[in-house]
């Protein structure tokens, strides 16, 4: 048998890679993909918990997370396109409209 902790460690490593990608990359699309990566890592641990606890809830939650991820990707990319139309750049460190 594979112990539960292996899954969690795997999930943690993937999540951390996602965090790294989110914080380090300049390309906004890759940043988005890092977010997806983090969501997936959470999904892994949820499914693992679901399996080991013999409960369905984890999987249902994954189901909803996938739904939200799809919606988020659609909206996020739409915003990206709308933004790119006005400011032709998707470099995270060149976008500072929030600066006060």
């Amino acid at each position: 048998m594979v112990p539960l902790s292996w899954y969690i460690v795997l999930s943690a490593i993937v999540f951390s890679i996602g965090v790294f990608g989110f914080l380090a990359r300049r390309n906004l699309i890759i940043v988005f993909m890092s977010v997806e990566l983090m969501l997936n890592s959470v999904n892994i641990s949820l499914v693992a918990f679901s399996h080991y606890l013999q409960s369905m809830r984890g999987q249902i939650l994954v189901f909803f997370i996938i739904t939200v991820a799809a919606a988020e990707a659609a909206i996020g990319l739409a915003i990206l396109i709308a933004f790119y139309r006005n400011n032709p750049t998707i470099k995270v460190d060149e976008i500072n409209l929030l600066k006060g």
Binding site: I8, A12, I13, A24, N27, D93
Partner: peptide, 22 residues
């Protein structure tokens, strides 16, 4: 162009520390 931001070492550090924490 460059693929990483200037703050990427911080990102890497945080990623490692986070993994350790988890």
């Amino acid at each position: 162009e460059k693929r990483f931001q200037r703050q990427w070492p911080f990102g890497a550090g945080i990623g490692v520390v986070l993994a350790v924490f988890f």
